[in-house]
Design a protein around this nucleic acid. Structure first.
Lengths: 327, 327
DNA sequence: TTGAAAGCGCTAACAA
DNA sequence: TTGTTAGCGCTTTCAA
């Protein structure tokens, strides 16, 4: 059993409020007794029960973060940024994963609210009306990661339409005649279209329309083989634009096994800027969507709400194209 | 403000204990009233205050996990496993990062204990006596990730001596005459030797002794250039054994830029089995140390202590060598 | 089968 | 300057 203010009070021969005054630094108190109390507290290694405090004053100094899983650099990078930011504010992080299941998402959110987190950062599974309802139930400040699924709510993300448009433009500028948009997560488990990816796709379509070239989309979960097939049947100079570097690597490997080389035989582009973290193999041409900034701003948006200061409801993160050796 | 049992009691016209009996399923209660209460609870979306509960019954159903950071697949992979395991036990995870600073480690541990976590999984910064003292202060069940720094305490890890011995043996079996052990984290920020890595190094030395070949060690934080230099000056057939695939990749890239190719000109080996996650570039010969299992067992060790069941104090995780194209 | 009361450890308002 | 009291929302005796 840890030592409590009650124990301290008994030991120091004063009341608990006096203990509290010494410990918190608030309220008038005799410097002598204060000094004595603090000494005793240190000697006995007093550590406040943060849950009790949270209950008494309604602030838990805890933030909840809900993401898909931690098997993905996209999320861990966001999370790392959140953790660093939160530490500065002396906040602790509760983390939950929904593994792309709406039911788990709901459950995790409930649990977090049950634990009285002061704020939540959510990478949502659900979309549209369901997401809106779910957000309405969040009784604390929150911030959504990615904003293609919602409007009028605190969120941070990149402009996916613009991302698609500019990425396609970049590919076009390199002289490619056909773009294959590879996006295994285009449909979720319930068969609904991902808002972010459909926006990207729209951006791509705009760009190819203007340039007068063609594009197609691959949404198969096992996209490697289809990509090889498409490449074999197509005579135009083509590029694969994949929704993440991870997928670009898979496509590149598959085509390489089939005897076709990125950069030489076709173009390959991804999103995530994995070249920043991994210098192995050819650098993949990629869109750097600044995941660390997403985490940082998400945390700040939530903290601003908690502290009641001004904040931008919708923060748009910049992205930029990083040249590589595959396009 | 969320609805409480007090509210429910008022609304249903019964006492709070009756509400509790309905909600918890414990104690005798009229099925009628129980049904009515449960309906109301659902209708009003009652959600228990888990902190209050935690305070009342001394169990928070929260586990604390302390690792270096999330910028490292080694940790995120462990963490992911812990999360999945914890979800099964309906436990939530508090995560803290110490960023390799002993002071932060201490602070994070204190905060976690303050939040009344039921157990802690720790990847320690501190070593030896300091670590022992720190562990002694942990008033809840815990498990240490890696066991080279401690003895007689709950922990999970791989046999680093054996790992070094077998990895070196594997390298030797491939005909290499000199091994360079590349380990930038051999010394920590305070200049102390990492127990895990010194064990590995001992294992390596044993193996080379038996085989009658030579070995050297590089502990520079910027090891790329030194490695290139060593390679240039050495006439023997040599292999670099790096403490992580990440570092092996860096060494490989540096030597490649200098015109030397892994596999052909020298051997390259790492630890982590990154080839399991990343199929880009040549597969690196690597030791798979099963990080996911580490996480899983760590969680189980802590949970067993919490539930009072039997458990093994020291769990040794298997490792195995994964062939690649660089050795 | 139900209710009353105490307590977990803390904070905060009010008295002394 | 210090102490008393009540309350946060829950669980857990004990009594009715």
């Amino acid at each position: 059993m840890a030592i409590t203010t009650k124990d301290l009070a008994r030991i120091c021969g004063v009341s608990r409020s006096t203990i509290n005054r010494a410990l918190s630094g608030n309220g008038r108190i005799n410097p002598e007794t204060k000094k004595k109390i603090l000494e005793k507290a240190k000697e006995l290694d007093y550590q406040p029960d943060l849950n009790a405090r949270s209950m008494a004053n309604g602030k838990s100094r805890t933030l909840g973060v809900v993401v898909e899983d931690l098997d993905n650099r996209f999320y861990t990078s966001i999370l790392d940024a959140i953790l660093q930011e939160a530490e500065q504010d002396s906040y602790i992080i509760n983390i939950g994963i929904h593994q792309n299941r709406t039911s788990t998402e709901q459950e995790v959110l409930r649990t977090m609210l049950g634990h009285k987190v002061d704020g939540i950062i959510l990478n949502p599974v659900s979309k549209g009306k369901m997401l809106a309802e779910r957000l309405d139930k969040i009784s604390v400040p929150y911030c959504v990661l990615g904003f293609s699924e919602i409007s009028g709510r605190p969120c941070v993300g990149v402009d996916e339409y613009k991302l698609g448009y500019e990425a396609a433009g970049y590919i076009i500028s390199k002289g490619y005649q056909h773009i294959v948009f590879v996006v295994p997560s285009y449909f979720d488990l319930e068969g609904r279209v991902s808002g972010a990816h459909s926006l990207r796709w729209k951006g791509i379509q705009k760009a190819i329309g203007e340039a007068g070239i063609t594009a197609s989309i691959v949404t198969d979960l096992s996209y490697a083989r289809p990509c090889v097939e498409i490449f074999r049947r197509c005579s135009k100079k083509m590029a694969f634009f994949c929704s993440a570097d991870f997928d670009a690597k898979a496509v590149g490997s598959a085509l390489l096994s089939a005897g076709y080389l990125y950069g030489r035989d076709y173009g390959l582009m991804g999103v995530d800027a994995s070249q920043k973290y991994d210098n192995w193999g050819p650098r993949i041409t990629s869109v750097d969507n600044h995941t660390n900034l997403m985490g940082k701003y998400a945390e700040q948006i939530v903290m601003s709400q908690i502290s009641g200061s001004e904040y931008e409801k919708k923060v748009v993160i910049d992205f930029n194209i990083m040249e590589g050796e595959t396009l």
